[in-house]
Write a protein that binds this DNA or RNA. Structure first.
Lengths: 138, 138
DNA sequence: CTTGATTTGTACGTATGTATT
DNA sequence: AAATACATACGTACAAATCAA
């Protein structure tokens, strides 16, 4: 239940509820969350508050949102495997808006940045890429 | 200038302006952005629209926000170096709210997830960690 | 140290436009 | 064509943290 008098903001409480439903499988990948209107009536909240809650999940990479469609639970992306080389250095960061568009990334997906020995840098979508350190078998 | 009649939403236009000021060094790391009130008057926008713009930059990891303080441009974190091993696999994702708190991560910082050969998983803050593939010198 | 001003955070409501069903 | 649903943008109000005198 939503507690309007507690310390935790209402929109985070709703985000917690919806996140639990996703983690538990009650709303599995590919399925949609209820509409803004339904959630706002169900929990007696303003629509803006509901939207903030869903936005939290979007920024966590759990759901995608498209205009006119209800928020959809993200499926696990098929991962490209990229082999790393000795001396490579990996870090993570969020893309800016232009990068996200040019790489076709959904909101909530980070970038893996690989700095190669030569000095140049490769970027990969964080949730759709596995960077692998070669072992004897490779 | 903000174009109220263009296709690009106003809050993204303002985010673009502020992002440029950060990238260009006009507002360097450690310095603060102008207040909501200043920006809303300067650009003739509602405060909510300004806050959405700054939120964009927060989710990109460019600024941190704390109640009562203006948004601050993030400094480059000192990076811990972690050595990878043969067979390790690296991917990236966003933390959920609980993870972010327990790891002490700012909003907009992704997690680097390292799956080790043995099967267990280590997580590191994406912007404060360099994962290094050992080379001959190491 | 205390007070008052500034500033952010949350939550509500309303309205309009646009995409999907 | 109509109903549903999301996206944007405005406004108001109050609480809480910070800052400055």
């Amino acid at each position: 239940m939503i507690d309007h008098y507690g310390d935790r903001p209402v929109y985070k409480q709703l985000a917690d509820i919806l996140r639990d439903q996703i983690y538990s499988g009650a709303v599995p990948p590919g399925k949609q969350l209820p509409s803004d209107l339904y959630l706002s009536q169900m929990h007696r909240l303003g629509r803006g508050t509901v939207r903030r809650a869903v936005e939290v999940l979007q920024n966590e990479g759990l759901v995608t949102r498209d205009k006119g469609q209800r928020a959809t639970v993200r499926e696990q992306s098929p991962r490209d495997v990229v082999l790393l080389e000795p001396g490579d250095e990996v870090s993570g960061r969020m893309p800016n808006d232009a990068e996200r568009r040019s790489l076709g990334l959904p909101v909530g997906e980070p970038i893996l940045e690989v700095r190669r020995r030569g000095g140049y840098v490769d970027v990969f979508p964080g949730a759709a890429t596995t960077l692998r350190v070669p072992s004897a078998e490779d």
